[in-house]
Amino acid sequence: MKTADDTQPLWRRRRLPAFGRLATLLGASIVVTAFVVAIFAPYLTPYDPFAQDLNLRLVPPVWMESSHAAHLLGTDQIGRDYLSRLIYGTRISLLIGVLTVITSGLIGVTIGIVGGFYGGRVDALVMFLITCRLSIPLILVALTVVALVGSSLTVVILTLGLLLWERFAVVARTTTMQVRNLDYIAAAQAAGASRAHVLVREVLPNIASHLVVVATLEMALAILLEAALSFLGLGVPQPLPSWGLMIAEAKEYMFFSPWVIVTPGVALFILVLGINLLGDGLRDMLRTDLRHRGW
């Protein structure tokens, strides 16, 4: 059953129910907006996110009493403009999300494809690696690594990248197993293609759409984990405007001015929700696509 729609790229196909389409669209626009905000942060921020003004500490956001029109979302405990810090925080979250996913994706996809393609003892080893990774307490190990190696953006990215590969590996392995016996793989091998060529040029493109869905899930997870690590004081170092770190710094003041913890948390929530909505939409599109092909 091939329809005209099959020739369209994934995102142009219109088989999702109206509700799902709307949700996916919402997710996509949140993610795109976040990237635009991150890239153009210097042009969007009203103030320098690191500039302190000790005369204007803990100014509440505009919708509350005794606020300043100049500081839309108020200021933090040392008088830094909250909106500017939130905008720059988008950069940190997206940087963490994207770079972690690239690192963990490279590791997980390699392990998964190799295990799924070769099977047997190689696959047993791959399964063993995945089991070991799953049994390690994620946050605890990440905290320990950052504590010992020192906190910096690079350390957090590498630590999370080295820890979050197992879902990539699991999905790459299962999907590779599904495609490895298909005709075009045999055809490529018969034509004399090298193993590397078969894995990278034949298998990988055919499982890529599944991996994109995993990438969105892992990106959301990485962003939440960075926030949690920074919140516990062992993630991104001060004075960087990481949203998790902003919540940690504001914690002392939350009993008197609860909004200080609300705004960075809402920013985190919206970004992660956007990524998840997008991922869910992609997965549903993929599912209808697969059902269509008779899988």
């Binding site: 949690a228 939350m254 913890i261 929530f269 929700l273 869910d280």
Partner: peptide, 21 residues
Amino acid sequence: MLIALLGQAVPGFWLGLLLIV
């Protein structure tokens, strides 16, 4: 399912702080 999706996006430590307040 929307509740599940929304729930997934809430950072646990932040939810904790909100509940405390």
